Amino acid sequence: MSPSPPLTPDLATLDDQLCFAIYSANTAINRMYRPYLSKLGLTYPQYIALLALWETDDVTVGALGKRLFLDTNTLTPLLKRLEGMGHLTRTRDPRDERVVRIRLTDQGRALQAQASDALACVHAMASEANVDLKPWIKALGHLRTEALKKAQSAGG
């Protein structure tokens, strides 16, 4: 591994750190979502799990974890709670008992229409701020991919 360049004054402050900009924006956006999600009885991690299932239903826990960048130990309690709320079912795959499949219930599918206010709140905020989200989403996706490559090569 090559040595890191020395920190320059413009990179040494908290406000100049990419990680802090992403973290603080994420925190602020999650706060914005909170009132909409609380009406649905959902946490943000539960909401993103449902978003993924609304895209592609009937997936394995492993596939869902990969899609959400969550490990099984984090995802399983979240899924148990959503199952207890009646939004999904978890069943063993009859072809391989080690595999657990996740399927939305009718109630879970119906929740998608109720969640439209949560989706609209971010788009409305971005519109008010005159920000086009598509290039940001694309750039952050690229950064995520590169960061994951670096983490893997470093053994993380």
Score class of each variant (00 low, 15 high):
Met85Asn: 04
Glu128Pro: 01
Ser4Pro: 12
Gly86Asn: 01
Ile22Trp: 03
Met1Glu: 02
Pro77Val: 05
Ala52Thr: 00
Arg98Asp: 09
Trp136Gly: 00
Tyr36Thr: 04
Gln114Arg: 09
Met1Cys: 11
Arg90Tyr: 01
Leu68Arg: 03
Pro35Val: 02
Ile22Asn: 03
Trp54Gly: 01
Leu42Trp: 02
Leu14Tyr: 11
His87Cys: 11
Leu68Lys: 00
Ala28Met: 13
Asp117His: 00
Thr105Tyr: 13
Leu18Phe: 15
Ser127Gly: 08
Trp54Phe: 06
Gly141Ala: 13
Asp132Ile: 03
Ala110Glu: 15
Ser2Tyr: 15
Lys66Pro: 00
Arg31Asn: 13
Gln112Asp: 10
Thr13Asn: 01
Cys19Ser: 12
Thr74Ala: 15
Lys134Phe: 13
Cys121Trp: 00
Asn26Gln: 07
Leu18Asp: 06
Gln114Glu: 15
Ala124Ile: 05
Arg95Leu: 12
Asn130Arg: 09
Met85Tyr: 15
Thr105Arg: 01
Leu79His: 06
Ala110Trp: 11
Gly62Asn: 13
Gln152Ser: 14
Pro35His: 02
Leu53Asp: 08
Ala25Met: 10
Asp71Tyr: 03
Ala63Gly: 03
Ala110Ser: 14
Ala113Asn: 06
Leu82Thr: 08
Val100Pro: 00
Leu140Trp: 04
Arg144Asp: 09
Ile137Glu: 14
Gln112Met: 09
Ala154Val: 04
Tyr33Leu: 15
Met1Trp: 09
Asp16Trp: 11
Ser4Leu: 14
Leu79Gln: 05
Val99Leu: 01
Pro35Thr: 08
Leu79Tyr: 05
His123Gly: 09
Thr27Cys: 14
Ala129Trp: 09
His142Phe: 14
Tyr44Ala: 10
Thr43Arg: 05
Lys134Asp: 15
Gly155Pro: 03
Gly155Gln: 09
Ala52Arg: 05
Arg144His: 10
Met1Arg: 07
His142Asp: 06
Leu18Lys: 00
Pro9Arg: 04
Asn26Thr: 14
Asp57Ser: 05
Ala126Val: 02
Arg92Met: 12
Val61Gln: 10
Thr43Trp: 04
Pro5His: 03
Asp10Pro: 03
Gln46Val: 06
Leu78Trp: 07
Ile102Ser: 05
Arg90Lys: 07
Ser127Lys: 10
Asp93Trp: 06
Asp117Asn: 02
Thr76Glu: 07
Phe69Asn: 11
Leu18Asn: 05
His87Tyr: 15
Thr72Phe: 13
Leu14Pro: 08
Asp15Cys: 01
Lys80Val: 04
Asp58His: 08
Asp132Tyr: 06
Ala120Tyr: 08
Thr72His: 11
Leu119Val: 13
Leu68Cys: 03
Gly62Thr: 12
Asp117Ser: 10
Leu14Ser: 12
Arg92Val: 12
Glu83Arg: 05
Arg101Asn: 13
Leu7Pro: 15
Trp136Phe: 12
Leu11Glu: 13
Lys66His: 14
